[in-house]
Amino acid sequence: MAAGGDHGSPDSYRSPLASRYASPEMCFVFSDRYKFRTWRQLWLWLAEAEQTLGLPITDEQIQEMKSNLENIDFKMAAEEEKRLRHDVMAHVHTFGHCCPKAAGIIHLGATSCYVGDNTDLIILRNALDLLLPKLARVISRLADFAKERASLPTLGFTHFQPAQLTTVGKRCCLWIQDLCMDLQNLKRVRDDLRFRGVKGTTGTQASFLQLFEGDDHKVEQLDKMVTEKAGFKRAFIITGQTYTRKVDIEVLSVLASLGASVHKICTDIRLLANLKEMEEPFEKQQIGSSAMPYKRNPMRSERCCSLARHLMTLVMDPLQTASVQWFERTLDDSANRRICLAEAFLTADTILNTLQNISEGLVVYPKVIERRIRQELPFMATENIIMAMVKAGGSRQDCHEKIRVLSQQAASVVKQEGGDNDLIERIQVDAYFSPIHSQLDHLLDPSSFTGRASQQVQRFLEEEVYPLLKPYESVMKVKAELCL
């Protein structure tokens, strides 16, 4: 049975990233139509530049190519590739079939990587351009969430054990800070992308030097003109047959890092959902379990974690691919890159769409948070109580021993009897502590235990987050809708 299948058929496997999760716009960027249309555009740009620099290419040939950029006979191309065992030459023939007058000058002087690699770089750039505003929107939604809850005390956790208090907004800023680093890295790697350009079979530009009869300047002009037509500021000066596969490492490393950030955020949300302090959106008709109707599973956060793990592992592909590119190139890269580049971007696209949807509907339960604080705060307040007693004339050592005994009794009630923490009640009825009984409410005010959390939130948002989001103001209103 021949390899390949009808990918629109229910009898043929289709990647869930495309069929179930990723956005239509990201799927289109990695589609065959987008790819092969870009090949034709690159052939047109090459012909236009070659004509401008004096090669015998007519206006009629150029116009014929322009008129057929979208006229792609995919069936013919597939048949040609089956016959020739070469995808680029299959599309040269297919393009030439609908451009008979231009057929002889299509791909003039070029090698397969002229269309293959340059198209990949265009796709990487455009895919990054799709991700950047999506990530900015996630940051914006979380920034709104953090600002609104900047002063809401909550129990902090280290080692997932109760620690000092923080605020809900401050905790959210930990998430935002990681995503801001990801946004900066995505922008950097996007701006650092260079075009492969017009380089020939081993990167020496020998074929173009021959076409222009040894004119170095025209060869350099050709490279520059096509690079500018493709919208790049610069091209690699040095290439082998391909652009260095280190570029793929750079791009997928940034995406993998984004995956790590999203995994951490969504894990926190899942843990908070278990504590009943916070939940992701839950639709009115949504079913959490087929057997347990009360369940409210954090399905979206779980999906993000599941896909983020996949995204983090994909960076190993370009690392290994770059390491086995012998001399000017081997074909070890080809099949692998067809999979890992598309999957990385479709996965990143999915987790950003999902995280935006989550961040637009996060639900906080202040009463649950308050109750958990009441359970733990008495123990945390013991040092403040000791200091207040010393100020009232008591002995630190005597007070410490009193607190120690009462704390152990209260802990026994919590752990052995399943009761509430009654340390404060014990202190309130103990005559030894009568000098500070009137101060206990103040000493137990949760806001006095959150330090500068709310001020940190305000400063972080104003100095770091809002300036970073400013270039994306025009796209901030787009909502994230999930079908599944």
Rank of each mutant, 00 (worst) to 15 (best):
K264E: 01
Q439T: 07
E70G: 12
S434L: 10
N185E: 05
G169V: 00
A453K: 03
V457F: 03
S67N: 12
R141H: 15
L84M: 06
L69A: 13
G169L: 00
P467N: 07
I339G: 07
P366W: 06
T450Q: 07
D144N: 13
D215R: 11
I72A: 07
L311M: 13
A163G: 14
L69I: 14
D215L: 08
I249T: 07
I358L: 15
L275S: 11
M380L: 08
K101V: 11
I403E: 05
Q397D: 06
E48H: 06
I123N: 01
R33M: 12
V413F: 09
S395P: 02
L461T: 02
G116P: 00
V168A: 05
E70L: 15
V315R: 08
E277G: 03
H400L: 03
K295C: 04
N118Y: 03
R190K: 14
Q416R: 09
T119A: 13
V413Y: 13
L46C: 07
R85K: 13
Q456F: 04
F232A: 01
C180Y: 05
Y472D: 12
Q285V: 14
F160V: 01
V475Y: 07
L174R: 04
S31D: 09
E50D: 00
V138G: 07
K229N: 04
A150W: 05
L355C: 10
K276R: 08
V88Y: 00
F208T: 03
M26L: 07
C483G: 15
D182M: 04
P471V: 15
E48Q: 09
Q428I: 09
E25V: 10
S23M: 04
A410W: 03
D223Q: 10
Y472A: 10
A90T: 14
A150H: 13
V189F: 06
V219M: 13
Q325A: 13
K295L: 01
S301D: 06
S334C: 03
H91W: 05
A78Q: 12
V478G: 15
M312P: 00
K367R: 12
L352W: 02
S15K: 08
F212C: 07
M65E: 01
P162W: 12
K402I: 08
P153T: 05
I57D: 01
E283G: 13
R234P: 09
Q161Y: 00
S257I: 08
M387H: 06
Q320A: 10
A143Q: 01
K134W: 08
Y294T: 06
I105W: 01
F157P: 00
Y13A: 13
S334H: 07
R337K: 10
L121N: 08
D248H: 00
L341W: 09
R234M: 15
L183W: 07
R309E: 05
S112Q: 04
T52I: 10
